[in-house]
Design a protein around this nucleic acid. Structure first.
Lengths: 344, 344
DNA sequence: TTGTACGCGTTATCAA
DNA sequence: TTGATAACGCGTACAA
């Protein structure tokens, strides 16, 4: 017997057992208003017939799709894919599935993705805002529909919704303090002119750590760019050419830190002896550089798990006035050889 | 006026225009059996009322969800996340969305993910098979339902379905030939005992390149392990201890190549002068090592795009007897300093 | 405890 | 070119 293409529905089960579809539905959904006998019979028949529930029909009827829309700037960056991993694991364990879309930092893509999510009738959205996004109407619509919206990493105070971020200030403060502990006094900082909160916070952590250690902040040691590898190279070349005195670099990104490492080595400088180096992100490559790069771990998988938990908290407290909750993850300074002067 | 919570349906549009829902549906779906006048009126009304189509209802009726289930071993590895990126971009451009799940190399997860996809009534699946998977019934079910199934990277000849892989043989052959070109004769190979096709192919490429250059394959230079960084370290330490003669290492993975690089440097050996080094995968970190690591690019984003294209080809030729198509992507040898003896 | 009846929003099939 | 009607598969008042 070939059942190919034949889709078993609750009606087939009902027919076989001489009950109605409603009874089958109740049995399958654990509704208590049903006798043990029939429930067992239904479950057995379902198994025998190889019944597979149709989530689409269920979703149409119940209004719940068990789908989460997840929006990231780009999926093939370790930080974001790790967050997706965290979200996916929690979601799957609760029988939810995750639709992933990328904005590629383009506002239009971001808008379209959110719209597509809504059309697909996702039960809610977990998203990181694009770098250039200043209009949040598409997100407001999500909230207006009463759907959970959780923002992570790149958030905005303009939306009253749950968020999960890391303590960028603390990460930068730890990084800078560590360099000071190692005896550094002239600490360069690579940041970005973009007015994104996370970089402002990192700058603030840098500045405050200096201040708390009675070191004057020299604006000549602060470089703004895009924090890419090339920026790190350029900044470092400028530094060397200018003859400025410096004994450490704290970069707000591992990539520009890597650029600095390359140029320093090319110029015969020793790391960390001549210049100590600290990055930010804990990109996978940082443990493979020579010397390995001290950096700040943002715990992205845990961040994703937390985002998912906030999501389900909101989802399950639908009726109550949901108070947006902001979770701040404490980062960790991963100390590697690029900054360890004492042990040398 | 607050429309919060009020969901506009095609019936609302129909009522407003004194037509029926069917007419509205036709207008919205570009059905030709409708007058220009009414179509324009419908489109205008839809916009005015801020109508958002309900994909769930459409999916229930039409049987098409515009959803692709995508299964990867783990999402936070550059190779796989890049493939997801490729799939996502093609899918989104065609108004399809991608549900991502991870197997974490656990067979049960793989089975469950496929089942979940089927329950969610995805229009098809794009998947990479788990390392330990030997039972393919869950995939057979997909095919029996007439759904497109595209396998990538880790495939199996046991399933009659479209696949996209890279030419592992060719990649390994190029890598080994390159080392020979650089004057190497005693070339070590790191592989794995796991009987996965891709590693067998890489071994074959290595062996044939040696043979074609009249170099005898010395089995003492072939090391089996898990291809992790630690394996590379261990293999290299064994090599050095054994006193075996060797002037190059071709590792079937960048990770074990990295382990080799560390141990070689720790022992004061120069790369590539004393030992030339080539990896496989083109992991992002390979360009940041010192020296940068020569490796084999698998074009993962393109692989994802190709997988998506195969998917849509199959989807659109439903009725015809679909001939499974195997696409082989040609890899590229990325030559970096770790293997460039001549230029030194 | 079970059955009846209906609706979720859309599309497909007729008929007009 | 448009309308009426049914159906996709399920869940849930309400009645029995």
């Amino acid at each position: 017997m070939d059942n190919t293409g034949k889709k078993i529905t609750i009606h087939d089960i009902a027919e076989k057992l001489n009950v109605t579809a409603s009874t089958v539905s109740r049995a399958l959904n654990g509704n208590p208003r049903i006798s043990d006998t029939t429930r067992k019979a239904v479950l057995k028949a379902a198994k025998d017939l190889n019944y597979e529930p149709n989530h689409i029909a269920s979703a149409l009827r119940s209004g719940r799709t068990q789908l989460i829309g997840m929006l990231v700037p780009t999926i093939n960056r370790a930080f974001f894919s790790s967050i997706v991993k965290g979200v996916e694991e929690v979601a799957n364990s609760l029988n939810y599935r995750v639709i992933v879309s990328q904005s590629n930092e383009v506002f239009e893509n971001e808008e379209n993705a959110v719209k597509a999510f809504l059309n697909a009738r996702v039960d809610g959205i977990i998203a990181s805002i694009g770098k250039t996004t200043e209009n949040f109407n598409h997100y407001s619509q999500v909230l207006e529909r009463g759907l959970p919206l959780v923002l992570f990493d790149r958030t905005t105070p303009k939306l009253q919704t749950s968020q999960v971020v890391i303590d960028d200030y603390q990460g930068a403060y730890m990084a800078t303090s560590h360099l000071i502990d190692q005896g550094c006094r002239r600490i360069v900082h690579f940041t970005t002119e973009r007015k994104i909160d996370i970089y402002k916070e990192r700058y603030r952590g840098y500045a405050n750590a200096l201040q708390d250690n009675n070191i004057e902040l020299d604006e000549n040691l602060v470089f703004s760019g895009s924090l890419q590898l090339e920026d790190g190279r350029n900044h470092t070349e400028s530094l060397l050419k200018s003859g400025a005195e410096f004994d450490a670099i704290f970069s707000a990104s591992d990539y520009s830190a890597m650029g600095a490492m390359q140029v320093l080595k090319e110029n015969g400088l020793s790391i960390p002896k001549d210049v100590a180096l600290v990055g930010f992100l804990n990109e996978p490559f940082t443990s493979f550089t020579d010397p390995p790069l001290t950096t700040v771990n943002q715990f992205p998988v845990e961040m994703g798990q937390t985002a998912a938990q906030l999501f389900f908290n909101t989802l399950n407290s639908e009726k109550e006035r949901t108070v947006p909750k902001k979770t701040v993850i404490q980062p960790e300074l991963i100390i590697r050889k690029s900054s360890l002067k004492n042990t040398n």
